[in-house]
Amino acid sequence: SPNSSLTEIEHLTQNVLKSYRETCQLRLEDLQLLRWETFTKEEVGSYQKKSMEEMWERCACHITEAIQYVVEFAKRMSGFMDLCQNDQIVLLKAGAMEVVLVRMCRAFNSENRTVFFEGKYASPELFKSLGCNELINSIFDFAHSLSSLHFSENEIALFTALVLINSNRPWLQEKSKVERLQNNLELAFKHMLRKNHREGILAKLPPKGKLRNLCYQHMEKLRSFRQMYPIIVHAVFPPLYKELFS
């Protein structure tokens, strides 16, 4: 944007990095420390024996918790709270889960294809009782491909800000305001990559449709689950989860 000075972009960068650091939920050092701490065969077996309802409820709670951190990230990002409330909600409703999926690559060990879950690293088989192997595998594949980019924490911060601030989301009321913030974030992201000689990753970033598709698959799976267990969803699933996904 010709109207944004380098100082403005630098301020935005610092603000996004700070907001991210304050809301990243799990510290990278802790995740790295536990990287080879995997569930035993017996523990995996006991997860696999859990009922579908229990496993769904657990995962819904974890997703909701992760999303609350993303909401907090958005709130601390300069410019986000200046958007009208309709647009804040549109962006979070469409983008919060996408950000959670990107953040997940920090908690993913691509060397043994496991993800941090309830204190240890878990392979896709652990989630068998959810009854959505295809979705779980797609999410693991996605985390694997993102891991290969070796994102730094600063890169994740700016990239996830851009996942959230997307002026192409339907139902925005002040599209141009979102567009301006998005343009500035793009400048900030590219500026940082240039500074660190990391522009090469730009061509390797996941296409926007990939994240959208994973979120769509998740909502479809929830729909099927809800048809089987409407009372469980109604009575025990976190209200924020239901508000966002059903």
């Binding site: 909401v71 907090e72 709130k75 709270m81 409330q85 979070l92 409703k93 924020l240 508000e243």
Partner: peptide, 16 residues
């Protein structure tokens, strides 16, 4: 607004 009351509340809560 009613449809997204929890998001509304989270966004308005300045203490979080």
């Amino acid at each position: 607004k009613e449809k997204h009351k929890i998001l509304h509340r989270l966004l308005q809560d300045s203490s979080s």
